[in-house]
Nucleic acid binder design. Sequence first.
DNA 1: TATTTAGTTCATTTATTACTGAACTAAATG
DNA 2: CATTTAGTTCAGTAATAAATGAACTAAATA
Lengths: 154, 154
Amino acid sequence: MTQQEKYIEEVGLFYEKYGLPKMAGRILGYLISSNTDNNSFDDLKNTLKASKGSISGNIKLLLSQNMIDKHMISGDRKSYYKIAINSLEKLLEAKEKSITEFKLILEKGIDINTNKDGVSHKEISEIIDYYKFLEREIPKLKNKWKQKNVTKTK
Amino acid sequence: MTQQEKYIEEVGLFYEKYGLPKMAGRILGYLISSNTDNNSFDDLKNTLKASKGSISGNIKLLLSQNMIDKHMISGDRKSYYKIAINSLEKLLEAKEKSITEFKLILEKGIDINTNKDGVSHKEISEIIDYYKFLEREIPKLKNKWKQKNVTKTK
DNA sequence: TATTTAGTTCATTTATTACTGAACTAAATG
DNA sequence: CATTTAGTTCAGTAATAAATGAACTAAATA
């Protein structure tokens, strides 16, 4: 097992831990450790020793999550894949979304709970306030980063 | 199906979506929408219509993740469960941990990628910088929240 | 227009994960 | 000290998700 092969399996396990298909993680592992942007379907299939169907399905998944980008080369009918430029934003957006979703669940839950003076009611309300706070603050954080990088690149 | 029963299944599906056992989500759903802190093993078993084994295992999981708290009542040998007071911190900590873990994976990956001048290398380095930024900023956010609440409560 | 290429789709197989229920432990009660 | 209570453990089963591989499509080439 080469260093890269070991790495690919490691990213696969990382992905699996978060309830996502291991093969999607392995594809990411390959793309992260690849020294080129021009990674074809067959490169993935051969290196990962997987079926066309699995590669196809997991590429589709990663594209839909904006984790990878697809590009073409003129005079070549193959598609090429690389880690997405905007995957950084997408990952934080996914976390934001999960915060919002969980906040909505908590709000709905304490609506059902009728004992408004109960300890748990008060505590869950506090959690909701915290999540609302995060919802306000995370966009600020993103702006802070953007401004930092605008001045850096220009 | 009562409103609470519907809600419990909803939280179960939410949990399942993130790759966690549906039953753990259902337990949380029950505790969030319960109007008391004194929710026993049997309350859970009966309302969720599940086996002792499943309740036991998923309580264990939620306790280990600090999502729920266990407490006793004197003169009573049953254990009681409620949503954890510190689950708000724990949830954000889990997100922080996943950011750190993914950053480490990216760092390891571009070490394997030898083409240091490649486009993807540059972009992944940028993602790593962003993650490092988040690692610095999130603790600040937590402090901001804490200070806000210290003055509020005192 | 026949053939090759590049990839998709989907039924089946395989692997993984979660749930059940019965046997068990350990502490409390009669 | 026998029984009940409260929960744990774990082998077997059920449910779910992922991977395979063959048949397919659609576009490009010969």
